[in-house]
Design a protein around this nucleic acid. Structure first.
Length: 269
DNA sequence: TCCTTATGTACAA
DNA sequence: TGTACCTAAGGAC
């Protein structure tokens, strides 16, 4: 679900199913009906993703801007499309496929200029080729805010969510409460490179896996486990369970209205 | 059937 | 900092 890797994967999947084909565009739930009517029958010409924002390009200058928020979901299927349920905000359908969007925070028809404005307010995205990690470090290195909060700030770095945040800090043994300005350039370079690798893997597998091979339960001689969000992780949603590395208890706390998870033993101040 | 929770963000005070 | 918004699953009754 929706961290940056999900959105980039969706950009690929929408393109694979609909690019260059006449597409029925509807909004069974109604909130996108006017725009859907304008797009109905047009071709999907390109897709794009930046952080957690997804863009579907129709014709030359029309874009559908989608943000899933916390609850948004996308489901693909093979034609013929079944009757939509009453929560489907946007359905695309062609002769071979359909895709339903439910519960997004944003689903809006925008122009090139409006799309550009969204790129302009987002930080570098580890999944975009042209991203410059130094732009993120300039803000981080000047900030008294915690690194945990900075990693979730989409103006600083785009696409990282609560899972990657917790996991990348664990992988680098960094205390989530450390101030941004106390992160060294070398540490930031390592975090960024790790996010690039982890999130690419996330796009490929459509899930978040962060546990190194040498730390899997099998490798550690521990009983196998199942993380209920579909991936293998070190600390995310593992409060009060033993750390895979040191065996200490994983802790959780509220940070800026989100659940933070970390191992105080492995991530010392 | 109700309550809680969730991988997110924007806006008001 | 609190609250509103969008949906669906799982668990407590």
């Amino acid at each position: 679900m929706p961290e940056g890797h999900t959105i980039h994967r969706l950009a690929q999947d929408y393109a694979a199913a609909f690019l260059g084909t006449p597409t029925r565009v509807t909004s069974p739930q109604g909130k996108f009906s006017d725009a859907a009517a304008l797009l109905d029958g047009a071709e999907l010409t390109r897709t794009d993703a930046h952080g957690k924002h997804l863009f579907l390009g129709f014709r030359d200058t029309d874009w559908v801007h989608i943000h899933l928020g916390l609850f948004g979901k996308v489901g693909f299927g093979a034609a013929p499309a079944p009757p939509p349920t009453d929560t489907v905000r946007l359905r695309l359908a062609n002769s071979t496929s359909y895709v339903d969007l439910r519960g997004p925070t944003t689903c809006a028809l925008i122009t090139d200029a409006e799309k550009q404005a969204i790129h302009d307010r987002l930080g570098p995205d580890p999944l975009r080729e042209t991203s410059d990690p130094k732009a993120a470090y300039r803000r981080i290195s000047r900030s008294r805010t915690t690194i945990a909060a900075l990693l979730m700030d989409q103006k600083v770095i785009a696409g990282v969510g609560n899972v990657y945040r917790a996991e990348v800090l664990f992988r680098h043994r960094i205390d989530p409460y450390r101030a941004g300005r106390d992160i060294t350039p070398a540490q930031w370079d390592a975090i960024w490179a790790d996010l690039v690798a982890l999130m690419r893997e996330g796009v490929r597998n459509n899930r978040i896996d962060t546990v190194r091979p040498e730390h899997t339960p099998e490798a550690m001689g521990r009983p196998p486990r199942v993380d209920d969000h579909g991936g293998e992780v070190y600390v995310y949603r593992r409060a009060d369970q033993p750390c895979h590395i040191c065996g200490g208890e994983i802790r959780t706390a509220d940070l800026a209205a989100r659940n933070l998870f970390w191992c105080p033993q492995c991530q010392k101040p």
